[in-house]
Design a binder for these strands. Structure first.
Lengths: 210, 210
DNA sequence: AATCTTTAATTTGTATACAGTATACAATTA
DNA sequence: TAATTGTATACTGTATACAAATTAAAGATT
């Protein structure tokens, strides 16, 4: 068993990713390399590398000679992001639908059904798993990478959905999506997935919190 | 007038990009940070940053503690890359076809027609312009970014096409593609674009030089 | 002769010092 | 008082020194 030790840059990157996704580091926050060093007790070199990685993910912006700040896309840009993801994930689903092992879908269905007690928190995990499943089995590693990046990039705006009151309905729609995928009913599955992602946008729109 | 001075990292990045795209830096070549420093007369910090940028583009691979090397994807992976690009660019074309200004297409047509004397070299530029036009007008900045990255990533494998003997035919097909775009004939244009990109793959296949 | 161990050399990962630039604030002038 | 210029501060860009780790080689043991 080989225990992999991540570099300081990698550790800082992962930690910041969590912070940004969970919303603890607010969008628009300006940050200095120095403050990061203090926070993680590392030097500037790995701190800068972590920032560059986050920039690659489209989560942090770099202004030459003027520091770094967490991306705060306009509402319109977030719409574009969701729309982009919707279109590309539909592409992936077309290829993936025949390749996803049934047992994985069944497992997901199980998980979805068994979470009646605490739907808000767990459902995000199931959601991730479903999207990951599609990416994993689309048969194209580049498409997979693109989807993973888009997923990361849109994750800061995902948490808005959890405290929606329409949890029940969303969960039901997910269930039927999985069913249709099991049935290899491509057209219906595509429609459902499309709606599912577009919903993220719609909830955002209703709130107008940006 | 504000004169923008690029950072050393940016300069090195651009230069390396050119080198890789033009094939002067061979795929599979292993390189050390030190050698880059010598070559560009810079220190390791900007050299590393340039390498990280290239890694982001999918052109350079980093093996922790074991150096950097230019990506040498397998034939199968290059196929995947082209296929990914084909699918996503078709998405973009669907959205773009109604937004691309006619005069731009006309200009491209002109350029294509006027290059009968030296078709091999210039045609690449027209090709780039066409793909850029589609990306620019798809109405989604994320999709645009993805396409640009895919374009950069596949550019090292594009030069194989120039010395093909079927230049005439390729040129004709491009012309009809532009025509169909002008006619707003989405279905035909999609088919032609699809073939156009797939052709890159096919030429690669015929050569089996990888 | 082959294999395992240890050691040396090379190269990346990290820390830090220095230089240059941008921003903010103060001072001076119109 | 407003505007412009000068100055100080803070932060990024860059260079370099040091630490850690991997690879390769040399040596010893079976």
């Amino acid at each position: 068993m080989k225990l992999k030790r991540y570099s300081l840059a990698e550790q800082a990157y992962r930690e910041m990713l969590k912070q940004i996704i969970s919303g603890q580091w607010q969008a628009g926050d300006k940050m200095t390399e120095e403050s990061l060093c203090e926070h993680f007790k590392i030097s500037r070199t790995p701190a800068r590398e972590a920032l560059m990685s986050l920039t690659r993910d489209g989560l942090v912006e770099r202004q030459p000679r003027c520091g770094w700040r967490i991306c705060s896309p306009t509402t319109e840009q977030v719409y574009e992001l969701f729309e982009c993801r919707r279109q590309i994930e539909c592409l992936a689903l077309k290829s993936a639908i025949d390749n996803i092992p049934e047992e994985k879908l069944e497992a997901l269905k199980e998980a979805l059904l068994s979470e009646t007690e605490s739907p808000k928190r767990i459902s995000l995990q199931v959601d991730d798993d479903l999207h990951q499943l599609i990416a994993d089995h689309c048969g194209n590693s580049y498409l997979k990478n693109i989807l993973e990046r888009l997923s990361r990039q849109s994750s800061p705006f995902r948490y808005f959905r959890t405290d929606s009151d329409s949890t029940e309905k969303i969960q039901q729609e997910r269930l039927t999506l999985i069913e249709e995928m099991l049935n290899k009913n491509t057209d219906k599955a595509l429609k459902l997935l499309s709606d599912h992602i577009a919903q993220g946008r719609k909830i955002l729109e209703d709130r107008k919190t940006l």
